[in-house]
Write a protein that binds this DNA or RNA. Sequence first.
DNA 1: GCCGTTTTCGGCCCGACTGTTTTCAGTCG
Length: 582
Amino acid sequence: MDNRIIARILAEIGEYLEMAGENFKPRAYEKAAGSVANLDEEAGSIYRRGGIKALEEIPGVGESIAEKIEELIKTGKLKYYEKLKKAAPVNLTELSRIEGLGPKKIKKLYEELGVKSVSDLERAAKSGRIRTVPGFGEKSEEDILKGIEFLKKSKGRFILGFIMPEVRKIEEELKKLSLASRLEVAGSVRRMKETIGDIDILASVKGGKDFDRRAKKMMSAFTSMDEVEHIYAEGPTRASVRLNFGLDADLRVIPESSYGAALLYFTGSKDHNIALRNIAIKKGWKLNEYGLFKGQKIIAGKTEEDIYSALGLQFIPPEMRENTGEIELAAEEEIPKLVGYDDLRGDLQIQTDWTDGSSGIADYAEEAMGKGLEYIAITDHTKHLAMTGGLDEKRLANQGKEIDKINSRIRKAGKRFRVLKGTEVDILKDGSLDLKDEALVKLDIVGAAIHSYFNLSEDEQTRRLIRAMENKNVHIIFHPTGRIINRREPIKLNIDEVVRMAKKTGTVLEVDAYPDRLDLKDEFLRKCVEAGVKISINSDSHEVSQLKYLYLGIGQARRGWAKKSDVINAWPLDKTLSFLKR
DNA sequence: GCCGTTTTCGGCCCGACTGTTTTCAGTCG
């Protein structure tokens, strides 16, 4: 039984206990679920290694939860969980996705009306029975129907790179009003999470006696924007709305003196904030969105730096704030200097109109120069991918001649820029490659990638990838897990083994920066960084405008704690090339 | 149910907003 399933069951137990009116147990289960989900090792393997005592080493897991995990590992079932489910057989996960509905209300609806699912809920609301339940009224009934409608329309979380233009547009519109002294999108957007659930906007206005008036003006400007489709809540300092492109947005207005505290708070993550608050508590202080306080006296609040520093911590970049060890590093002054958003010098994965891309090589060179890059690699698909018009050895050689011409034109124009010859060679089912070694050895950059047989077992898939890495001509594995966010699951891989073999063979692993790939993802990148495996951040462009997606790959690499020295295309070209010639 | 510079008991992050209530429980982030 894998960690995700164990974590989900623990989290559900927490919700059932909350329904039952328990006070602190739900949080204990929720916390344990979070740690299990974040484990590097399968709980089953921890248990086999050290038994129940080893399970108790997991943060938030004590005697009782360890026994429950043991039962799940041994029997695949958990009596305690089955009992809770039987006592209240409702689809909690589904129902609590409706805005405004939590465990307590769900319990009431189940007890009074027998509501078990969203479809039960819809019937109850439409027939006017919700309003008869104590604590509910006509408004609640309406809100529930609206919530159901929204749930039917929305497809869960939005992919950051695709929604970013809309986010920036809202941000720009609000800034244009010139009502706020500072305004910023915080939350998961600022942490560069690959998907986001909503937009958290933070604005500050001058404090003092006119604060209320200024804040109110800001709030009403926000809720009356053209994009606002529905207002969930609107108070003097906080409003929550649904935007017409299907995303929810929150605005908080705070006085300037609290901007740093509020930015810290609204950037999250929630777990990071809780950990910071606990540090404050241990010092006898209190941390909230208005500042860090000792009694009534404010110690810090104007900037995030001030607050971290007062807590005895180094500044932590937003992308690292997930409470997965960064606070401990900050206490030791060991936060790494992460690769920066301006650090990339080249892009090593680009598809052109020779295969399934729609822009030509020269256009890419032009666009990349305009973006300040110093090199790009052309890496079209190979013959096995017939639907893309993949290149065979002969067409690849012809493409090389065109690249030579383009490079000489660039040189004659006196520009320092180079187009590298490359390929995205297909990894076949058995791990062999789609092009002959004689063709590969002539190229500057050989990326290899899996595009077929996504359903092999973990063992087969891992051996397949390792065989590709063992080819001396392969420099980089492109999008190693093959996932497409919200569409395709990653292939099954023993990632630790892959990282180990990448280190041994000197193979680079990629962060494909395309918005719905971001592959490798953050947690796997951390493993690379720890093991000393180099990474490259590439756009996987199929059209010149897609070079802009590199920033998403950088964000993901920062979430994986990568430094400039870990990223081969953040280096000068001669260093990169000599590194690749192992 | 977990945990410990509050250490084996007594705490557990904190504040805004809503709807349905006449003072607050529930939800959210």
